[in-house]
Design a protein around this nucleic acid. Structure first.
Length: 511
RNA sequence: GCUCCGUUGGUGUAGUCCGGCCAAUCAUUUCGGCCUUUCGAGCCGAUGACCUGGGUUCAAAUCCCAGACGGAGCACCA
């Protein structure tokens, strides 16, 4: 009705003022995008972006923002994006060899495919070459100050004695770094910025340092001299032609540091967009790779896909579509303030995606058994989906007794409507079939509840964010395939995970 | 301590650059109503926000100043 009147209105406007209509619809076209326009996107031949994760574990939900926003911009501008694993710290942010593929999987789940994939640990020689060039330009020096010593000098705006070394010495010492002749902490290469820059964070930052621990990837295990993120990332962004950098506020100062390097090389720095941190409501577990890992190691979580873990693997197992997450992330925009993402927003998106295809089944939690009397029908035949009669009915044999949820057990002499079956009155601890029509429900006197036969049913474990719930589902659930999503009537949506000998396991999706 | 950045309903967001059409958009949440043999869907409706104080102006969510609150960086982490 609404759509129709909208059409009518549109036609009316088309008749009266065709020019205005075109204008209105052109504006609508622009409004199609929820994200703000990228700065100067029109000035570049191709919008090129990168998604630069640290492969130190599978992704939590917050990570989804990167591919969601970058991938959406790619579609919008018909641009390009790569995934670049910034795995240049084999020690404190030690890469997890499985995480590289896990992350690419997660990105695919979210609905995107990168145009290219790089690993920084494959490109160390490239960073060395640029370091050499930078040294030659007088933009870097080797420094053997301890961290504390340099920090003190830096905070006072004073240069350390190494800053004035001649280029030949710096070259020599840097080559010794590359050859691994120093131990961890002995020598670094610093970028010469501005030693009394008003922001202490920007003064002569470290570009390369020594790390004794070998990189877990075989191809990179011989390197001991590793670039820091600000250097490596800055070089790579230029080399792959990145036009727009989109990253978190924790890297707000990065652009300023990297500009010093770009100035030495006479490169043009990309446009930058910074966003704040994402918090999720609804979880007890903190959303950080390291704390989730600790909980798994301690046995408090079953794994990365435990329903209580705020990870993408978990949401996926619960039957939440990647698109539901992506859309919620797009809705957050790109503001620099920290944001709380409500899970309900992901749920609302997902419900819209799965409601239509999720058939309906009964699942009774903690069932209370009640005998039936009064000769009810032998079989109940509720529809698989109330909006899709063409899908047919389920067949639920009745037997002599049913299980209902304890909260649904009616008071004495009260009537209750067993959904898909009929009206019963609770008399002498028995549900007596009354044969009344559905009108008694319409009149509002009788509650509709779900149930399963006490004899023929499927024991089912429903894994939820609050822990596992045991109960029994109607027989048809045994025939469902893994990955099917269903709606357990009056309980909520769930994804069928597997059938075991003793029970079927399903994951609770959301109400 | 030094340096950046931010603050629109419960949550997120639009609007802020270029002041008026903003008693402020959209989504979600919550609460009602209708419908439905549903916790779902659909339809209708309601509640609910411009951090504070000054200033400029005919006019401020929007510009200026101050303050409060929040965040980030000052790592040989990313």
């Amino acid at each position: 009705m609404n759509a129709l009147s909208h059409e009518e209105r549109r036609d009316r406007i088309a008749e009266l003022a065709p020019d205005e209509l075109a204008e209105i619809e052109a504006e609508d076209e622009e409004d199609e995008w929820d994200l703000p326009a990228l700065p100067n996107a029109e000035d570049v031949e191709e919008v090129r972006m990168r998604c630069a994760p640290n492969p130190n574990g599978p992704w939590h939900v917050g990570h989804a923002r990167m591919p969601a926003v970058i991938g959406t911009y790619r579609e919008r501008y018909d641009g390009w994006f790569c995934v670049r694993f910034d795995d240049t710290d084999p020690e404190t942010k030690r890469p997890d060899l499985e995480a590289y593929d896990d992350i690419l999987d997660d990105i695919e789940y979210l609905g995107f495919e990168p145009d290219a994939v790089y690993r920084a640990s494959d490109r160390v020689e490239t960073y060395y070459e640029h370091a050499r060039e930078l040294i030659e330009l007088g933009g870097a020096y080797t420094c053997s100050c301890s961290g504390e010593t340099f920090s003190e000098l830096k905070n006072d705006g004073e240069a350390c004695p190494h800053r004035e070394k001649d280029v030949a010495t710096v070259q020599e010492e840097f080559e010794a770094m590359v050859e691994g002749e120093y131990d961890s902490g002995e020598m670094v290469l610093r970028v010469k910025t501005d030693i009394d820059h008003k922001n202490p964070a920007l003064r002569d930052f470290v570009a390369f340092r020594m790390i004794d621990t070998p990189h877990p990837r075989d191809v990179a295990s011989e390197y001991r001299c590793w670039p820091m993120l600000d250097f490596q990332s800055g070089i790579d962004d230029h080399l792959v032609g990145v036009t727009h950098i989109i990253r978190g506020i924790d890297l707000q100062d990065s652009a300023k540091k990297q500009r010093f390097v770009y100035d030495y090389f006479d490169w043009e720095y990309p446009e930058v967009v910074h966003w704040g941190h994402v918090q999720l409501d609804a979880y007890d577990v903190p959303m950080s790779t390291s704390s989730i890992k600790e909980l798994i190691d301690a046995g408090d979580l079953d794994g990365w896909d435990d329903p209580r873990a705020p990870t993408l693997a978990s949401l996926r197992r619960r039957g939440i579509r990647g698109d539901a997450i992506t859309d919620a992330m797009i809705g957050l925009g790109t503001s620099t303030s920290n944001v709380d993402l409500a899970m309900s927003s992901i749920y609302a998106n997902n419900r819209e995606l799965i409601d239509d295809e999720s058939d309906r089944y009964f699942f009774v939690r903690d069932g209370t058994e009640i005998p039936l009397g009064g000769s009810p029908p032998a079989e109940a035949n509720p529809p698989l989906h109330p909006d899709h009669e063409e899908r047919g009915d389920r067949a639920i044999p009745i037997g002599d007794a049913v299980l209902v949820e304890p909260a649904d057990v009616p008071d004495r002499e009260e009537r209750v409507w067993l959904k898909g079956l009929g009206c019963f009155q609770y008399t002498r601890d028995t549900l007596q079939y009354t044969g009344e029509s559905i009108d008694v429900v319409r009149e509002g006197d009788v509650d509709v509840i779900h149930w399963v036969p006490a004899d023929e049913n499927v024991p089912l474990r429903l894994r939820t964010m609050e822990g596992d719930v045991l109960g029994h589902a109607e027989p048809g659930v045994a025939a469902l395939d893994s990955d099917d999503t269903v709606q357990f009537v009056r309980v909520g949506f769930a994804r069928i995970d597997r059938h075991e000998d003793e029970e079927t396991v399903a994951y609770f999706t959301h109400p």
